[in-house]
């Protein structure tokens, strides 16, 4: 092998290594770029309405009023309601699949069901919600004597709950599987029942990981766009009950961004985008950190 080919190899070696680091840098720049773009673009709005953006409820671009409180309330209301509805289901499935049925055909069916639910795109959840779920809710509303919109906060929360269950359930199942077998066996050998073992040994051990799963699924619910947009009714008024129409931060972006004209209008929408990005970033960083810590402890 000649000196020239060695040089050549060394050059390629260096080229390859810089290619690797360069692609890492691109990802870094991409994410920082997203943040900076949102920040710069929403500056006019931040300056224009100082910090009272989220303190009043009138959103009327025509008269130049940009109060985002109803979107914030709509987002938090739907997301937390969805989380609340989803918890019994996702926790049950996580325990069943993580502890009781680790193999066998029932586990396979359940797992497939979860995978199927996770694979359905959000626009189809919205479509189904609009045409199947909303009429049912309308009937319910008629029986209850409230305004029968069918769509609204409750419908959106139910659809969201359905969408986040598979996610929280599979994360939960994974952390429950991380619980060392010796701990479970020790508990059972001391005469504890399976239920007691789950409640006193497994759940406490997996607690942080399971909460991280709920946190991450909350993040999903906060940022979900299409399904919510289709079934929430798109009203800019502050929701007063779970049967009210509403809007979330994501749904108002989906509805108004392409029609927005005027720099303050666009900038106000981007401010909503910025808030959404910051909140989901914080949630996913905390959630990931907790899960990583749990699996490292293993």
């Amino acid at each position: 092998m000649s000196l020239k080919t060695i040089k050549n190899t060394q050059q390629k070696e260096r080229l390859f290594q810089s290619l690797l680091s360069a692609s890492g840098v691109i990802i870094l720049v991409l994410v920082i770029g997203v943040f900076i773009t949102l920040l710069i673009q929403s500056m006019p709005a931040i300056i224009a309405h100082k910090f009272d953006f989220f303190s009043h409820t009138t959103w009327d671009p025509v008269s130049g009023q940009y109060g985002g409180l109803s979107f914030l309330v709509g987002t938090l209301l739907t997301a937390f309601l969805a989380l609340l509805i989803s918890i019994p289901f996702s926790l049950s499935i996580a325990i069943v699949l993580g502890e009781y049925l680790t193999e066998g055909w029932i586990a396979l069916i359940l797992k497939t069901a979860i995978d199927l639910l996770a694979g359905i795109p959000s626009v189809i959840y919205g479509f189904w919600g609009l045409f199947v779920l909303a009429p049912w809710i309308r009937n319910l509303e008629i029986k209850l004597g409230v305004l029968p919109y069918g769509v609204g906060i409750l419908t959106a929360s139910l659809i969201l709950a359905l969408m986040i269950i598979p996610y929280a359930a599979s994360l939960g199942r994974e952390v429950i599987r991380l619980v060392p077998a010796e701990l479970k066996e020790a508990s059972l050998s001391l005469g504890a029942t399976r239920y007691e073992t789950v409640r006193k040994i497994i759940l406490p051990y997996a607690k942080s990981g399971i909460s991280a799963g709920f946190l991450l699924s909350l993040g999903r619910a906060l940022s979900e766009t299409m399904a919510v947009t289709m079934v929430i009714g798109n009203s800019n008024l502050l929701p007063t009950s779970i049967f009210s129409l509403g809007n979330t931060m994501a749904s108002v972006l989906a509805n108004e961004f392409s029609e927005a004209n005027g720099s303050i209008y666009i900038s106000s929408l981007l401010e909503i985008g910025l808030l959404l990005f910051v909140v989901t970033t914080i949630i996913s960083l905390i959630g990931r950190r907790i899960i990583k810590k749990m699996s490292v402890h293993q």
């Binding site: 680091s21 890492g24 840098v25 990802i27 870094l28 991409l30 994410v31 920082i32 997203v34 773009t37 949102l38 991450l216 993040g219 906060l222 940022s223 979900e224 766009t225 994501a250 972006l253 989906a254 961004f257 929408l269 981007l270 985008g273 959404l276 990005f277 989901t280 970033t281 949630i283 996913s284 960083l285 990931r288």
Partner: peptide, 23 residues
Amino acid sequence: LSGAVRTCVDILQGTPSIVIGII
């Protein structure tokens, strides 16, 4: 750098798709 990149990947995974749209 690679630690920072890993964090960025986590962030990107959690970024709402609508935000990517407006970006």
